[in-house]
C-alpha cells in the first residue's frame, strides 16, 4: 500500500503525541503496585514500549517509503527491483 499524505501526517502526529505521553508527570510520586509487584510507573512505560512496537507496525503498513526504494533500486542498470542491495562500482566500493 503506497502511503498517503494524510496517513503520514496521522502517524507523525501519533509519534509526537507519544513523545508527550512519555512525560507521565501524574505518576511521579506514585509507588502503587500493579499485579502486586510492578510499580505503576514501570507498568506505564512497559506498555509504552509495546505501543511503540504497534506504531512501528502501522508505519511499515501505511507509510513504507516505496517510492524511495524504487528510486534506489530501479534507476540504474545492475540494480534489482526487489530492493536487494547491489553496490555500484565507484570510488567508494570496498573491493
Amino acid at each position: 500500500m503506497h502511503p498517503t499524505h494524510s496517513m503520514k501526517k496521522l502517524l507523525t502526529g501519533t509519534a509526537i503525541a507519544m513523545l508527550i505521553l512519555h512525560q507521565d508527570f501524574w505518576l511521579w510520586d506514585n509507588t502503587n503496585l500493579v499485579f502486586g509487584f510492578m510499580p505503576v510507573g514501570l507498568v506505564y512505560h512497559a506498555c509504552f514500549s509495546m505501543a511503540v512496537a504497534i506504531l512501528a507496525v502501522l508505519a511499515i503498513t501505511f507509510a513504507w517509503p516505496h517510492e524511495l526504494i524504487e528510486w534506489a533500486t530501479t534507476k540504474d542498470e545492475g540494480a534489482g527491483t526487489d530492493g536487494e542491495a547491489k553496490p555500484k562500482d565507484n570510488q567508494y566500493k570496498i573491493r
Binding site: 517509503p65 524511495l68 526504494i69 540494480a79 555500484k88 565507484n90
Partner: peptide
Amino acid sequence: FAIGIRLWSYGMKHGFV
C-alpha cells in the same frame, strides 16, 4: 525509519559503506 531507510537507499544507489 527516518534515517535508516533513507541511508540504505543512498548506500544502494551510490555504493557507500
